[in-house]
Design a protein around this nucleic acid. Structure first.
Length: 952
RNA sequence: AGGCGCGUAGCUCAGUGGUAGAGCGCUACCUUGACACGGUAGAGGUCAGGGGUUCGAUACCCCUCGUGCCUACCA
């Protein structure tokens, strides 16, 4: 006797690892060699290499795995390509934290040594999330695993960069950007999270130069007043128009600044007068640039978030927030604070470290996105890319139409260093040397100088080589021409100088992620994989990266592959905790998927995620439901035990393999089958159809519930119970065909296949129990084109109604299930009579009857409980332990229900408009219902009267 | 401020222009030969509120309330 027959409970731990290794060893996850098959390909949205699996990943991977496994069983050539991205800022942060523990920092190490160090870290910890995906059962082709900093992917990045630059779609520009003073880098607009906070609005008095009076401005950032270069008012604002052009003596600084006019100023907000700090506020930058001449830009805050020398000696070196306090205090001393009021406003935070971002004016690299974006809009409009559910289309369009140029340079070291070089020896049009516009800060003093223009350093006798190897920071003005190319240049193509400096910045990680759908397949080479698997079939992802990836992948795909990167985009929900809160480390409400797998098994966890994944809604994770699906697996396990026990009991021959039995059974003519067998085959067909339909339409929850419903409430609740009778009948009928046993195996085998994409482990385990030599269930065909048998469904449904009627009487009168009953059924139609008679044994056994009489001439016995159904009346004589009062109550309740139904139906039928306007079929149906209920009511009333006689 | 979504059983959620559903929980009875991680039978819902369209609305439209998210340059 083997393990299953002994164990009444399923233990996932024992088998999951075994089967995962088995699949790997047998190359089950690699695309088939058969190039004539249709192709289905998915690239995984690469998780951060620093990451560990969270619920979002688990859901994402589970859905992809379900699709991949399903399509494999459908005969597709499936590629699911895994990998991770290098997560520039996040990874660098992690390693820098490590260094800090050793009292080191990246500048001490130097760039090369630092990068070496990050690679070491990646080698040691980077496989973490991949390992977790395997625990989940993900059927990725691990032989094709990629990383955004791979040699091949880096070549793709370079190719794209150079090509976009040469086309003028990549350029450098000095403007305000979002700067994270902690990560010390620029961020794109998307990487800034806005959060509403309760702040203060400070009203400050700015006196006019002539001290005649003052103008009051309101601000949330008093410290920036040190960099103000104007006060703006709306040109239509009568209160202030006369002030336009007047000069203000800016407090604390001694500078004078003008009052200017600008349309954007809202007279209704604050005082209607706005201080303008072009260097530290995006609005103010725009106002400054609209003025003629342009307002001066005075930067008072440095990259470290501290005030710089321009802020004045008193404030230099203070943190922005310290300085704010001091400025307000100083103004108060001078009686220049009018008031402070509390004020709600939203401010930007770094998405990696949550530090408040600082707008700073710097030179950065940008991608010009307008034409790329409009193409990306078109392919969604004309459905070359489908977004599912399509509610997200609007968000996509809205974002795309409003898109601004993408800042792609980051001031960090971990990533793809920008392939651009500068020549300090070339001469600009005006005759000045480019070296005048390259500013170098050295790590230490050389020849008495620590920082300065390249030309200055060179003239102090510092060699080019020394400059490069000791540079801490190199800033290059926008007037300096970048040199780029697929090969690192060694000489300047213009002047022949060999003194080239490489751009220090790296590219945004998302820049390489945007190429993922084709760079992972080998582009820019024309590989077989690229030909076979691009465009990919579907991208499965959460909406939070719709813009980060989907949009950018579409742009890059169209641009470089001349085709969209994927046909479908399936956007799944975000997983929240039971209270609907977003899971986050800081809230401490994170549920670790691996914990769930440990506790309930990967199958139960996966199935829960699929069942949760209704379209267009967030998911509140509920552990209780996971537990519920573990029970479901246990149910399946025990159904299998029943089957194996039955085989032992009824099969005289050697056990055949499940594959043989299933194919043999396929040849059986349904005419030779009894109704329960025909019924379960039909229900299987329906379940298979619904499961496929759900998966094809990305309605994972529908697919999951179709298979759940079938296995538990049809196969187990009814067919297995019917089969007990069928087996006995076949054992005694002398033919020894064992059709029912084969049918059960056939249906069970198909059910396992239907379930396999959701629950790969248990289904493989059970499948294997019926055949040591068969191929893995993952390589069988998904059930398809099974036959629906409506007649069998209707007839068995009638039998089920009959059995339920008897069970109701038992249940409601509180009669023990073990007490055998005698039942009489009076039928009122030939069809009913013949149907029930044919299924006599099934009714008798499933309703636990001692005797059963079916006839159309039955006289209702005295003292019997009754149940009235369409076409039949069921009587259970209960002399002795019969409680008249209880039975009366039961009948009264039934009568009430029936009367309500009659009223409802009657109301409709009396409504002429309904009869005239409603479709004929609906009216007919309603009439039938009415008749049925009337007949039922009459019978119930008769029974009630009988009962009352008995009572007296 | 705009845009999007959600409000259905005690809880978590499906769903549909024509009889309101699931899982968990609850009640009663049952160690019946696959399964107590189980079986059988029950209880429980003005489908947020108000208006409109319709023969008929939980579903379609409008408004209100509640709630969540995204976008925005009100200093």
């Amino acid at each position: 006797m083997d393990e299953q027959l002994k164990s009444k409970a399923y233990d996932p731990k024992a088998i999951e690892e075994k089967w995962y290794s088995f699949w790997l060893e047998n190359d089950c996850f690699k695309p088939s060699e058969d190039t004539s098959s249709p192709v289905f390909s998915i690239v995984i949205p690469p998780p951060n290499v620093t990451g560990s699996l969270h619920m979002g990943h688990a859901l994402n991977a589970t859905l992809q795995d379900i699709l991949a496994r399903y399509k494999r069983m459908r005969g597709y050539r499936v590629l699911w390509l895994p990998g991770t991205d290098h997560a520039g800022i996040a990874t660098q942060n992690v390693v820098e934290k490590q260094l800090a523990l050793e009292n080191l920092n990246r500048h001490i190490l130097g760039r090369d040594a630092f990068i070496e160090r990050v690679w070491m870290w990646k080698k040691q910890y980077g496989g973490h999330i991949i390992h977790q995906l395997k625990k989940l059962g993900a059927s990725c082709d691990w032989s094709r695993e990629r990383f955004t900093l791979d040699e091949g992917l880096s070549r793709a990045v370079r190719e794209v960069f150079v090509s976009l630059f040469e086309e003028g779609l990549i350029y450098r520009s000095q403007r305000l950007i979002n700067w994270c003073p902690r990560c010390f880098t620029a961020l794109s607009d998307l990487e800034v999270e806005h959060e509403e906070i309760q702040g203060k609005l400070t009203y400050m008095r700015y006196p006019f130069e002539d001290s005649s009076s003052f103008i009051v401005v309101a601000t949330t950032r008093p410290e920036t007043m040190l960099g103000d270069t104007a006060v703006a008012i709306n040109p239509k604002d009568g209160r202030y128009v006369s002030h336009i052009g007047k000069m203000i003596k800016l407090p604390l600084t001694g500078r004078t600044i003008p009052v200017i006019a600008d349309q954007q100023v809202d007279p209704a907000f604050g005082t209607g007068a706005v201080k303008v700090t072009p260097s530290h506020d995006f609005n103010d930058e725009a106002i400054a640039k609209r003025q003629n001449p342009v307002l001066p830009f005075i930067s008072v805050i440095g990259q470290d978030g501290k005030m710089n020398i321009n802020a004045g000696r008193r404030y230099t070196g203070l943190d922005r927030y310290e300085c704010r306090k001091l400025v307000v205090a100083d103004l108060k001393d001078k009686n220049l604070i009018e008031k402070e009021e509390s004020h709600k406003h939203s401010i930007g935070h770094c998405y990696r470290c949550k530090t408040v971002i600082e707008p700073l004016s710097t030179v950065q690299w940008y991608v010009k996105v307008d034409t790329l974006a409009s193409n990306a809009i078109n392919v969604v409009k004309n459905e070359q890319v489908r977004i599912i559910p399509d509610g997200w289309k609007n968000n996509y369009f809205a974002w795309m139409q409003d898109i601004k140029d993408w800042c792609i340079s980051r001031q960090i070291w971990w990533g793809h260093q920008i392939p651009a070089w500068y020549c300090p020896d070339c001469t600009l049009e005006g005759g000045t040397s480019q070296g005048e516009n390259i500013y170098v800060a050295l790590t230490h003093k050389i020849n008495g100088i620590r920082e300065g223009r390249y030309k200055e350093l060179a003239s102090c006798g510092i060699s080019h080589k020394e400059i490069i190897s000791n540079a801490k920071n190199i800033r290059v003005g926008t007037s300096v021409r970048p040199i780029t190319g697929m090969v690192d240049p060694t000489v300047c193509p213009t002047c022949g100088s060999v003194n080239l400096l490489r751009d220090q910045d790296v590219l945004d990680t998302w820049f390489s992620s945007a190429l993922w759908p084709f760079s992972t397949l080998g582009w820019p080479d024309h590989t077989d994989d690229l030909k076979a698997f691009y465009p990919t079939s579907v991208l499965v992802t959460g909406f939070d990266i719709l813009f980060f990836w989907v949009a950018r992948m579409v742009m890059m795909g169209i641009k470089f592959m001349k085709d969209v990167p994927f046909r479908d985009v399936y956007i799944h929900a975000l997983i929240r905790d039971e209270k609907g809160q977003k899971m986050s480390k800081s809230k401490g409400n994170v549920i670790d998927p691996l914990l769930m797998i440990d506790k309930y098994g990967a199958d139960a966890f996966r199935f829960s995620l699929a069942a949760f994944a209704a379209q267009g809604r967030d998911i509140r994770f509920s552990e209780e439901r996971v537990e519920g699906y573990r029970y479901f697996i246990n149910k399946l396990w025990n159904a299998s035990r029943y089957i194996r026990i039955s085989i032992d009991k009824y099969s005289t021959r050697q056990i055949e393999t499940i594959e043989d039995i299933m194919s043999e059974f396929e040849g059986v003519d349904s005419v030779s089958l009894k109704l329960p067998e025909r019924w379960v085959l039909s229900r299987l067909a329906q379940a298979a159809g619904n499961t496929s339909k759900g998966l094809e339409e990305y309605r994972f929850n529908d697919a999951a519930s179709a298979i759940y419903q079938f296995i538990w409430h049809e196969l187990c609740d009814w067919y297995i119970e019917f089969s007990k009778t069928s087996f006995e009948q076949e054992a005694s009928d002398g033919k020894n065909q064992k059709l029912a046993l084969k049918c059960l195996l056939y249906v069970f085998g198909h059910a396992l296949k239907l379930l396999h994409p959701f629950m790969p482990f248990i289904t493989e385990e059970l499948w294997g129990m019926y055949c040591q030599t068969c191929k893995t269930i993952s390589k069988t065909n998904f059930p398809d084109q099974l036959i629906v048998d409506i007649e069998a469904e209707d007839r068995i449904q009638y039998v089920i109604d009959c059995i339920s009627g008897i069970r109701s009487i038992r249940g409601e009168l509180n009669i023990s299930p073990s007490k055998p009953l005698n039942a009489m059924i009076r039928t009122s139609s030939h069809a009913a009579n013949s149907n029930l008679t044919k299924n006599y044994d099934y009714i008798k056994n499933l309703a636990r009857l001692e005797t059963l009489e079916i006839s159309d001439v039955i006289e209702k016995p005295r003292g019997a409980a009754a149940s009235v159904k369409t076409g039949m009346e069921i009587y259970i004589p209960l002399s002795g332990l019969f409680n008249v009062k209880t039975e009366l109550e039961r009948l009264e309740k039934e009568l009430k229900k029936t009367n309500e139904a009659i009223n409802q139906t009657n109301k409709k039928l009396l409504n002429e408009d309904f009869v005239i306007n409603a479709p004929k079929t609906v009216v007919e149906k309603e009439k039938e219902r009415y008749e049925e209920y009337i007949a039922k009511r009459d019978k119930i009333m008769t029974n009630i009267n009988n009962m009352k006689e008995l009572e007296t």
